[in-house]
């Protein structure tokens, strides 16, 4: 898997460098600006907002690339190379997901790093006020976001792979993939999460809030369900890649 991972990085290293360099440079410029003695406190919030927006754009790019990593191999000519190498479907898929995990980790480190420094420039009183409002348990929140992220990406990977199993013609593949994806979203919400919905329905924003232990327990339930779902989609996609796709 490490060899495949190495080539996944080779394949995209310019874009990887570019996007993190952009995030770091923008963060550094904003930081330099708020560190100036002439800078007024009122504009620190604006700088935090600008950095958050940049960070969000990079996050969306990471998701799109995470999807395209498999989509390119499934729908473009390079798939002839990827799927004739003697590797298991799970190895091919795992190499892409590991790169995605690394990307997400870098993004998190840079975003939290700059975000924290920018945040520390706020007046002490405001900092305390905001900290009181955002009072998360760190690990359940992190685990929930991480598992939900990989669930989302793997659901799209599965939809694309199933499309390549059912259709050889590329013309209607986007339509079919989208249809499968939305069906899965509906099915999972109604059938899979259904029995637990009362427990986990508020988790999206308030997961892990120290003020509410019920929500915390709901958060762990969601994390557990997400992990199972991630394992199911990973196994199913790997199986299809190895045994069923038509390139």
């Amino acid at each position: 898997m490490m060899t495949l991972l190495k080539y996944e990085i080779y394949r995209r290293w310019r874009w990887l460098v570019l996007r993190y360099a952009a995030l770091i440079i923008i963060g550094a410029i904003l930081l330099n600006r708020v560190s100036s003695p002439a800078y007024q406190y009122e504009f620190i919030g604006e700088s935090i907002g600008k950095f958050a927006l940049t960070s969000l754009v990079i996050f969306v790019i990471i998701i799109i690339e995470g999807i395209n990593m498999l989509k390119e191999d499934l729908f473009e000519e390079c798939g002839y190379l990827t799927f004739t190498i003697p590797n298991k479907g799970r190895t091919i898929l795992a190499s892409k997901l590991v790169l995605l995990f690394f990307q997400l980790s870098f993004w998190t480190i840079i975003s939290i790093g700059f975000g924290s420094i920018l945040f520390s420039k706020l007046p002490y009183r405001e900092m305390v006020q905001i900290k009181t409002q955002i009072n998360f348990y760190f690990y359940p929140t992190l685990l929930f976001i991480l598992t939900a992220f990989f669930n989302f990406v793997l659901m799209i990977h599965f939809s694309l792979t199933l499309t390549r199993t059912l259709l050889v013609n590329k013309r209607y593949s986007s339509l079919l993939s989208t249809g499968i994806f939305f069906f899965l979203v509906y099915f999972i919400e109604k059938v899979y999460y259904g029995p637990f919905l009362n427990q986990i329905q508020y988790i999206s924003i308030e997961i892990g809030s120290r003020a509410n232990t019920t929500l915390l327990s709901g958060g762990y339930t969601a994390v557990f369900l997400n992990i199972i779902l991630t394992a199911i989609f990973f196994t199913a996609t790997s199986y299809l890649l190895e045994n069923k796709i038509n390139i």
Partner: peptide, 19 residues
């Protein structure tokens, strides 16, 4: 499958190398 891919060398008609 994985085994046969290790003993079969395939040359496709298209340009399959990564760009």
């Amino acid at each position: 499958g994985t085994y046969t891919k290790s003993i079969v060398s395939y040359l496709p008609e298209i340009n399959y190398l990564y760009k």
